[in-house]
Simulated scan of single mutants.
Amino acid sequence: MHSAMDPAARSRTYGGFLHLEELLSLQESPSGHHDEMLFFTAHQIYELWFKILLHELERARDAMLADDVPWALYCLRRVRVIERVLCEQIDVLATISPGSFQQFRGGLYSSSGLQSAQFREIEFLSGLKDPAHLRRDDLTDAERERLTRRLAEPALTEAFDMLRVRRGSPDLAEILRSEVIDDDLGRLAEALIDHDEGFSQWRYRHVRMVERIIGGRDGTGGSSGVGYLRSTLAKRFFEELWSVRGRL
């Protein structure tokens, strides 16, 4: 007879290495409704992708602070691809019918995707720092601590500005006027715009998905739903990098 696998050996298996037993036990369907499992799992997956985005954006920021443009570009390329994945995942949530969502919506109580601390961290790290988010009463102590740290540390916008100053404050319009950009600051500026655009596309797709499912009704967690989400569509991380195009 085979003896039970010892913990050390189990940790070297595929399931053990990925902690699959624990991971796969985290998906819930409190009401037992068919689409509830999808709803919970999709949002957990979003939070995992947000974790990776923070990891890559932080590394890109640190690379810029260290004058390592190639490494910053390496990380930002991955960020853009992940943001495409986030957009594609909207299509999965959009398969939940309006009637189906109403069957388990009440079980969400006061929870809302707007309460995602990692989402706010991405905004802070990218350059949209709003201290008002720190005053929310739905934050845990750990979440408030993370947002406080993100508020105090350099954002991507600041890291790019400092790098530009160290390079002699070149005119971005002059750099971007080239038909083929061969300047590393120019390539970095375009990579940051890619991130900004990618996140904006996700916001837009998310608004449309929510509108498709709940229409103009108030959202969960006390939000105004689609009305609030629409008001965020004009947000941008890198205003100067957008406006400079008007001077080309």
Rank of each mutant, 00 (worst) to 15 (best):
D6A: 10
R12S: 10
G15R: 07
L20S: 02
L26S: 05
L26G: 00
Q27E: 09
E28I: 11
P30E: 00
G32M: 11
H33S: 09
M37L: 15
I45P: 04
Y46L: 13
E47A: 02
W49P: 12
I52D: 12
L54N: 05
E58I: 06
M64A: 05
L65P: 04
L65H: 04
A66W: 11
V69L: 01
Y74Q: 14
Y74L: 09
Y74D: 13
R78V: 08
C87R: 13
D91A: 15
D91G: 11
D91K: 15
I96Q: 02
P98Y: 07
F104N: 07
G106F: 03
S111A: 13
Q115D: 06
Q118L: 13
E121Y: 03
L125K: 05
S126V: 01
K129G: 03
L134G: 08
R136T: 02
D137M: 09
R144W: 07
R146C: 08
L147S: 03
R149G: 00
R150M: 04
R150P: 06
L151Q: 05
L151F: 01
P154N: 04
A155L: 04
L156I: 00
M162C: 11
V165E: 15
R167H: 14
G168V: 03
S169I: 00
P170M: 10
P170K: 06
D171T: 02
D171N: 14
L172G: 01
L176W: 10
R177Y: 02
S178D: 10
V180Q: 15
I181D: 00
R187A: 12
L188A: 01
I193N: 03
D194M: 11
H195A: 15
H195Q: 14
G198V: 07
G198N: 02
F199M: 11
S200D: 12
Q201A: 11
W202D: 11
W202V: 03
R203D: 07
Y204D: 12
Y204N: 14
R205G: 10
R205C: 12
R205D: 15
M209T: 04
M209I: 00
V210I: 15
V210Q: 09
V210R: 09
E211A: 12
R212K: 13
I213N: 05
I213H: 03
I214S: 00
R217N: 11
D218P: 14
G219S: 08
G222F: 09
G222V: 06
V226H: 07
Y228G: 06
R230M: 12
R230Q: 06
S231P: 11
T232H: 02
R236M: 00
F238H: 12
E239F: 07
E239R: 13
E240S: 14
R247G: 00
R247F: 06
